[in-house]
């Protein structure tokens, strides 16, 4: 990959992020001119609460921040998991962490715990996501060695298991609870708060930092485990760090917005074609690319049926799945073909 192409990819991503953020803040049932965005946001934080200031400061800015952070978290996690699994199809849902986190969250809604404390759903999502990752890891580890194939297959099995239990809970739940669960499961950014922004900021920043420390190890690991051991990559440690980090960050994302599909799959795959396989670059680019995808997906979700609003998870899947199939068909990337 030429340096020029890499530089242009980052410039394009930066411009897209800026445009996406401006449109996300400006458009909606109340349209606010772009030049007014910064003064209105400034006024809101100065305590001036007229309609436009509140729309920007209390609704759209936290929503934009949550969308961007969730996109960054999911896309960087997808990048790291694809390197660890040496499989371009890996994304946060493949190791069961998304479905595990969903199960925890749905259980708290069903048991009424979500009403007791605003942190009960995120905490349950983290915990159940982590438990699933831990169980899968234990199953796939024999005599201190973790088989990537066993990890992938048990992830698929646990995803099916957790999804079945979620469906069972849904079918037994009263109508009102069921609607609440369904809305949450479909993935939404409605009602995003500054609390969520703060939580996600901490989790996503720490996770991206951790992934970056593992970037060189992930590069070597993508060559194969023996090659990686030959240059001193601590295999088990690298796998554990990436899996636990992914469980935490996906747990945070799922607890905040529900399950949002395809971001972790499509963004790294697409960027790898443009900027090559180096994970250090790819993690940074995926963070920006994931944020951009989520911002534009949310923009479509909010604007397409105005004044009604779709859940962003529907849009990411509707955009992501055909686009991914198109990419596969064109076979543009030979990254994982020997």
């Amino acid at each position: 990959m030429s340096n020029r192409r890499i530089r242009w990819t980052f410039v394009t991503l930066g411009i897209a992020l800026f445009i996406g953020a401006a449109l996300e803040l400006s458009l909606g049932p109340v349209t606010i001119p772009v030049p007014q965005l910064i003064p209105d946001a400034w006024s809101y934080f100065q305590g001036v609460h007229d309609t436009n200031n509140v729309v920007i400061g209390a609704i759209r800015l936290p929503r934009l921040s949550v969308a961007a952070l969730v996109g960054a978290g999911l896309a960087t996690t997808g990048t790291a998991l694809q390197a660890v699994f040496r499989n371009p199809m890996a994304d946060p849902s493949i190791i069961g962490v998304s479905s595990g986190a969903s199960l925890g969250a749905v259980l708290t809604i069903q048991l009424g715990l979500s009403q007791l404390n605003e942190w009960s759903t995120p905490a349950a999502a983290f915990l159940s996501g982590l438990i699933v990752v831990f169980v899968i890891y234990r199953i796939a580890t024999v005599q201190g060695k973790t088989s990537i194939y066993a990890l992938l297959l048990s992830g698929v099995a646990f995803t099916a298991l957790c999804s079945s239990i979620v469906t069972l809970i849904l079918s037994l739940a009263p109508l009102e609870t069921m609607q609440q669960m369904l809305f949450w499961l479909m993935g939404g950014l409605n009602g995003s708060t500054w609390h969520e922004v703060l939580m996600l900021l901490v989790f996503v920043t720490v996770a991206v930092g951790i992934y970056l420390t593992q970037a060189h190890a992930l590069d070597v690991l993508s060559l194969g485990e023996e090659q990686a051991q030959g240059v001193g990559v601590p295999l088990q440690q690298t796998k554990q760090i990436v899996l636990v980090t992914s469980a935490f960050v996906v747990g945070a994302c799922v607890s905040s917005t529900g399950v949002i599909g395809f971001v972790g799959l499509v963004v790294p795959h697409l960027l790898r074609i443009w900027i090559g396989p180096s994970n250090r670059r790819l993690i940074v680019a995926s963070a920006i690319g994931g944020a951009v995808l989520m911002l534009f997906a949310d923009l479509i979700a909010r604007m397409i049926l105005l004044p009604a609003e779709l859940n962003v998870g529907i849009i990411t899947s509707l955009l992501g799945a055909p686009f991914f199939l198109f990419l596969l068909r064109r076979q543009e990337s030979s990254v994982y073909r020997g």
């Binding site: 040496r86 070597v220 993508s222 194969g224 030959g230 001193g232 020997g338």
Partner: peptide, 30 residues
């Protein structure tokens, strides 16, 4: 430890790299 061992022992397995999209220079840098 794996890193300390790698400073003393370099090993090239028989199998070719699974991911062959790195450049020669990136591969040697590893």
């Amino acid at each position: 430890s794996p890193k300390d061992r790698a400073k003393q022992v370099a090993y090239l397995p028989q199998q070719m790299p699974e991911n062959a999209s790195f450049t020669v220079e990136q591969y040697v840098e590893m």
